[in-house]
Amino acid sequence: MNFRLVSSDYSKLIDLFGRVSGTVEPSYRYFQIYYRRGLKFFATDGCLKLEFSSSLPVDPFTGVYSVPIDYARALKSSDEKSFVSFSSEGETIEIKTDSETLSLQKARSDAIPAMERKFEFSSRFPLKEFNESLNFVSAASMEGDTVEIFSRGSETILAASAGRLVLLSILEYEPRTDFHFSLQYVTVRHLVKTLELLKTEELDAGSGISDFGLKAGSLLFSICTDETEFPKPPSFLFNETASGVGVQRKAFLSALRKITRLSRRGFSVLMISDGKKLKLFLKAGSLRYDCEIAVFSGEEFVIQVDPRKLQSALSRINDSLILLLMRKGNLLMAGKKSKKYLLIPLIN
């Protein structure tokens, strides 16, 4: 094996692999290099698997070389026009810059990383729009939760349940086949961070034998799926929201920032409408605190919500105006333009 990368490309690859593998499980913080119909790079978090097909001309070689990401990160250079060279001899791989050499012994294995590589791609999305939706619906979840991606007629739905919150985003791109995938929360967050780095404008999505597949240019993602079945979203979520009463998003975020300074993590607060004003209310021990969000001419209601989760979700809705309306025992908070929705049960 013998090839070299421009330093700026090397840095981008190391950052990409770092985001794929994450920091939750240190044993996955490495990337692999091998030849399979061309030069390939591979990284994983154990569920999310990425194979990058490089266009660099390289003579065929055997074996798979593993490099710890944190070791490779040490060779990143501020000189973007310099080169980083890779070479191997036996079980040893050597990575060199103009002034540094990293040599790793016993770095070679025989088995090419296993992953699904054949997918029936049935949907195409603008990458940025898809990632913003994925970022939104996973905003309030935690480890152990899942994020759902499924088809509904001419639309693709992304959804997640997080405590008392249900988050849903609609992508108006019609899939060619029906599908439903449940993705692990931790892997979804790794995917969101990874896609943020990409300059590719379009993203293809589809199904394999058991995995969910994504393709962005020369990057192929294979993502394991859970069998957890997400309850079918109520049909009223897809009805017209024009009857909702609008509240400025920045007013919500300002009030939530204040109340999160006073509440402990994991504590819930009340959001109350008396038909004239919309308020947040906190009671904790001897502390009583209420904060007016905005003048509000909608219906009276009371909901209980984790202010940090609500803040995280609302900060990811791009609309300046959030519409509030009652739907069958729930408060629906809707970003009409972005088609992002929050559903919270009312307190009777």
Rank of each mutant, 00 (worst) to 15 (best):
K128F: 07
F181E: 10
G63F: 06
N330C: 12
G244Q: 10
E89T: 09
M333V: 11
K49Y: 11
G329Q: 07
Y71V: 03
K106W: 02
L282C: 10
V58N: 09
K49N: 14
D110H: 05
K106S: 14
R37W: 05
E202Y: 06
S87D: 08
A284M: 06
T101D: 01
L342T: 11
F83E: 08
F296D: 09
D145Q: 01
D204N: 13
I317Y: 03
R327D: 02
R264A: 14
A111S: 14
L56Y: 08
F125P: 03
Q105R: 15
E80T: 07
G206A: 09
I112Y: 01
E148H: 14
D319V: 08
A72L: 04
L321N: 11
D110L: 14
G153M: 12
T241L: 14
Y341P: 07
L158Y: 09
S151C: 08
D145E: 06
S235W: 03
L104K: 03
Y28K: 07
R264D: 15
F52H: 15
T156W: 00
G18V: 05
K276C: 04
R164L: 12
L183S: 05
S123N: 03
R288I: 03
A251G: 00
G246F: 02
T97N: 03
L171Y: 08
F136E: 12
L219N: 08
L253A: 07
L323N: 11
R19Q: 02
Y30R: 06
L323R: 15
C224Y: 04
L220C: 05
L321T: 14
P113T: 13
F41L: 15
E155V: 13
P57H: 07
G217C: 06
C224V: 11
K250E: 12
S169T: 05
P57G: 03
T101N: 04
Y65I: 09
S268P: 02
E299S: 15
S297C: 07
I322N: 02
Q248I: 01
V84M: 14
A162V: 08
L48K: 05
R29H: 02
G38E: 00
F42H: 13
Y173H: 15
A216W: 12
I223S: 01
H190M: 00
S182R: 12
F238W: 03
S78I: 10
K118M: 04
G153Q: 11
V295W: 10
K232W: 00
L325F: 11
S103L: 14
R308Y: 04
I69F: 12
G90F: 13
E300N: 11
R189E: 03
E201P: 04
K250N: 13
R265Y: 11
L168V: 09
M142W: 05
V188Q: 01
R189W: 00
I157N: 13
G246E: 15
E196V: 02
F252Y: 15
